[in-house]
């Protein structure tokens, strides 16, 4: 069973060509599919409920930033088993003089991970901000976060400190495909790259393409009595 057997027709080449084409098409289609993406979080874990918002009360928390493009807040909210009540969200500048975004979640949602719309999305990142969730219903809700404060003030409910900070995740308003992120990926990849700097994304592409070509070359060279 020598290497001559490897030159058995052109079938490996055909397999490589067809397989490669399928691979390229699959990657292209996969990258073109829009997906929901997060713009970030406030980094607060949410192992337990730390604030209870009674009917008519509002929970507010100071945040270092509201990422650009955020279309909704994702929070873990408990309703004590009842259907989710209507909730209102607002994002204000820290001095309270400007309303940056506000939205409303209709009643009927199920307790757990909940997306609260922010209404108009912010084009630019805002910082610092105050995020509020008000409960105009007759049902109390509990909000998850971390007891105490991780170096920041706990949330306030009706003006009084809650048991801890609540977790916010920021969901991007637009579902985006990987292709549409290409520019952003290329520009952000240059951050903190030391030696490579602005060349980083191009180098990655070149190295990956060369590695793929090298793998094919290695396989083909095996048919030449290597």
């Amino acid at each position: 069973m020598g290497s001559a057997a490897a030159t058995d027709g052109r079938s490996p080449l055909i397999v490589l060509a067809i397989g490669g084409a399928i691979l390229v098409i699959a990657l292209a289609l996969g990258a073109a599919r829009p997906k929901e993406r997060l713009a970030g979080s406030n980094g607060v874990p949410d192992p337990e409920f730390v604030a209870v918002v009674k009917p008519g009360q509002a929970l507010c928390q100071r945040e270092a930033r509201l990422p650009a493009g955020a279309g909704s807040l994702r929070m873990t909210i408990g309703t004590y088993g009842k259907p989710g009540p209507p909730l209102r969200t607002s994002v204000q500048s820290i001095d309270g003089t400007r309303l940056l975004a506000n939205g409303r979640l209709a009643a009927g949602w199920t307790q757990g991970s909940v997306d609260l719309p922010l209404g108009a999305t912010t084009r630019k990142r805002r910082s610092p901000v105050r995020i509020c969730v008000s409960n105009p219903s007759r049902v109390r809700i509990a909000v998850a976060g971390t007891p105490g404060g991780r170096g920041a003030l706990p949330a306030r409910v009706a003006g009084r400190f809650a048991r801890g900070q609540v977790r916010f995740e920021y969901v991007l308003a637009r579902r985006t495909s990987t292709w549409s992120l290409a520019d952003r990926i290329a520009s952000r990849m240059t951050f903190g790259r030391g030696l490579w700097g602005g060349l980083a994304p191009w180098l990655v592409v070149i190295l990956v393409v060369l590695a793929c070509g090298g793998a094919i070359r290695a396989l083909l060279s095996s048919g030449k009595g290597a």
Partner: peptide, 16 residues
């Protein structure tokens, strides 16, 4: 030995 090189090529495509 006949189909082996093709299977090797398919395996390399999967790995890539």
């Amino acid at each position: 030995r006949r189909a082996g090189p093709s299977l090797a090529a398919a395996a390399v495509v999967v790995m890539i």
